[in-house]
Each structure stands twice: as structure tokens, then as C-alpha cells.
Design a protein around this nucleic acid. Structure first.
Lengths: 138, 138
DNA sequence: TATTGTTATACTCTATAACTATA
DNA sequence: TATAGTTATAGAGTATAACAATA
């Protein structure tokens, strides 16, 4: 019974949703004294250690940028660099315990912020999950 | 019949969706020789002229930043500043014709990129629209 | 006095190019 | 030679503080 939105309308809503989510993430990061890029880096590292190169690829930036970002995170003891045991050119970056706590705090902040999700029924959550998976496949 | 995702899973998918969309937008902007902030500014101005102050508020940045961003857009004739006729302190920023074309091109690029939307039925589009409106109310 | 926009400053992010050390 | 990481550089975004013009 709900009216069918045009592709343009849906794209506009999508843009609004993205802006809101991104602003929330940025605010949570800034409250922890982190820049968005630094917080994104911690988020990626949450899945496990990664080389400088693969980090740059995941974050869609040039590899040279990672040096400064990791430098600043390392200076605050949020991550550490470890020379790979199999290829001495490679440096693997891993979260420290402090870094894990920091990114967990940001995640908790995001959970508290995304109150809209709590207004969905289980069925609606499952449906939103399915639809987003179609629109943004992994 | 679909399994019900946890809030954490849904938030992770949401983050992935946001990243993908943001990366697409950035790529479209860069192809037009624009930075993300510049392209976002044009997007906001598409709704109509706005003062420097309100632009900063909408873009969630300090007002002092707008000066440089608008300077660079104006230098390329994408926007123009006009002193308000009712308050001479205020400068209203408006898209030029060139600016309108630029942001339209980016929008078209985004439409071509968001191919996932084309895989939804009308009913699914309406449902996604409804669910996103609940999660990210205006 | 308060507000708008700007300037000055310092830090961060970003891409490009050149370098080093390893492979 | 090729690749991983770094450095140097220049341009852009960002917040803070201070300022001139206007309300």
C-alpha cells in the first residue's frame, strides 16, 4: 500500500542515511580524540592484523598515507607495528589492548546512537538486512 | 524464513553499505576534479542558495572552513557569492549553471553505479524506503 | 552586544614522486 | 626487477582564536 519511490528518491534517502551514519561515526571518533581516518583504521584492524599495504587498499587511499596515520596511532599506543617473520619488507599492524578498548567504545557509542534500529521488529530487521545485502553485496 | 540478524550484524552491514556508497560518491567527485567536501557542498546547494553559516551547519564543519571551500568552487565558476539584500553581513551562495551541470553529472554517475537498486522489485524498493525512513528519520 | 564572514595558525589527510631495503 | 614501506612535497580539509563589518 506504500507508494513506490522513484530511484532518485531512494538514492536521496540513501544519501541522507549515509550522511547521518557518517556524522555519527565521526562524532564518536572525535569524542575519543580520533580523526575519522584513524577510527576507520582501528575498525579495519578489529578483524585482525594487516600489512600497511592491505590497510591502504581497504581504506582506499595511497599507501604513503598509512605511514602518518599509523605513526600517530602508534604514538598513542593504540596499534603496534611488527615486522613480518616471512617477508622482512612487510610490517603487520595490530591493535594493542588500548586500541581494542578504544574501538569498542566507539562501537558502543554507535549502538546507543542508532536508536532507529530498535524500532524495527525482528522481521523488519531481517528484511532490511536482506535488502541491504542485495543493494550493497560483499 | 530468513534468519534474524543481531543488532551488531545489522550495524556491521550498515557500516559496509555506508563505506561503499561513500567510496562511490568520492570516486564520482574525483572524476569531476572535485574533493568530497566540494561535491557535498554542491549537493547541498542543489536544494537552493544558502548562507555560509547555514552551509557550515549542514556540512557539520566550522564556519571558517567554508571560506576556503567556497573560494575554490567560486574560482572555478561552480558557485557564486551574493551579498544578502536584507542583511549585509550575510553572503548567499548559489550554484552557477556550470555548477548545476557538475552536480548533475555526479548524480548520473551515482545512478549508474548503484546497480544494486535495479535488482529490487517495486515492492522491495518501497519497503527499503520505509525501513530506512524509520532508521534514519529526517 | 551579538552575529556573519574572514583571516591566521596548526594539525591532519591526501596523492605524487623519489628513495631504501628487501625479495 | 619488482614490491613494501618510507620520505618529501604540495594542496585541501579541519578546529580554534581573533578580527572587521554589520545588526
Amino acid at each position: 500500500m506504500s507508494p513506490i519511490p522513484s530511484k532518485a528518491q531512494l538514492m536521496e534517502l540513501l544519501a541522507h542515511s549515509v550522511s547521518t551514519h557518517y556524522a555519527d561515526f565521526t562524532a564518536a571518533a572525535v569524542d575519543m580524540g580520533l580523526t575519522p581516518s584513524q577510527a576507520k583504521t582501528l575498525t579495519v584492524l578489529r578483524r585482525g592484523p594487516a600489512s600497511m599495504r592491505s590497510l591502504a587498499q581497504t581504506l582506499a587511499c595511497d599507501a604513503s598515507n598509512m605511514t602518518g596515520i599509523i605513526d600517530r596511532l602508534e604514538k598513542r599506543d593504540l596499534v603496534r607495528r611488527e615486522v613480518s617473520s616471512t617477508d622482512r619488507r612487510v610490517k603487520n599492524v595490530a591493535l594493542t589492548e588500548v586500541g581494542e578498548k578504544a574501538i569498542d567504545t566507539i562501537r558502543e557509542r554507535m549502538e546507543q546512537t542508532q536508536t532507529g534500529l530498535d524500532q524495527l521488529s525482528d522481521q523488519e530487521r531481517a528484511e532490511l538486512f536482506r535488502l541491504l545485502t542485495v543493494v550493497f553485496p560483499r
